[in-house]
Design a protein around this nucleic acid. Structure first.
Lengths: 100, 100
DNA sequence: ATAACATATAGACTAATGTCTATATTATAA
DNA sequence: TTATAATATAGACATTAGTCTATATGTTAT
């Protein structure tokens, strides 16, 4: 029933080119915020903002080590959300499923 | 190289609860605009706007019949975009892929 | 305790998005 | 041709989202 809203927080998170770029960086392994910053023209608070959006959507996770925070991709989240979504729109053979 | 931007137009399109609801309706088969409208509180121009966004992203297609326009889900688009995206973030075994 | 560094938060500003009303467009009917 | 119905477009308005500067928080070193 609230499936649409649930998937939307994920899709909103990945519907930004800069956030996708962050995700692509993290797909190779965890990185600290400052390391991520080096790949962008944006200022650090903007990066932190994007990381916050990704984290709220469970797309990334983080751990603290000393003064640094290392972010990593939650690959399971990405694939489960995508495959869930795909399935929801798979061709039905006759019987409907979702209600109004 | 422009993969992120490309996928973003799709994700932007599906990152809205009302548009996902439209997609769920269309997953059962094609519908005219006025038929879609009956499922929402929004006014018709808003529905047309959302249909336009979905159409630009290739998520839906339409055909005209008399004064009505029937929209249908482009199921292939949904699944190919989702699986492309998943794959892009699949665990790499060592070699990197996407460049900066 | 103080300084220096890494990150997060707050608040301002701008741009993009969603919704509305009004109207234009296109197709059929009278 | 005129009227009616279905859809799209234009423009106004409010809300949301992205980026910035300034600053707060937390951690390590001196």
């Amino acid at each position: 029933m609230s499936v649409e809203f649930d998937c939307c927080s994920f899709f909103k998170a990945v519907a930004d080119a800069n956030r996708v770029k962050i995700m692509l960086l993290l797909a190779r392994g965890e990185m600290s915020v400052s390391a991520i910053c080096k790949h962008f023209k944006m200022k650090q608070p903007s990066i932190s903002h994007h990381l916050g959006v990704l984290k709220s959507a469970k797309v990334v996770e983080c751990r603290k080590e000393g003064k640094e925070v290392f972010y990593r991709l939650n690959q399971c989240c990405v694939s489960s959300r995508c495959s869930d979504f795909m399935q929801r729109f798979a061709e039905k053979t006759g019987k409907g499923a979702a209600g109004d």
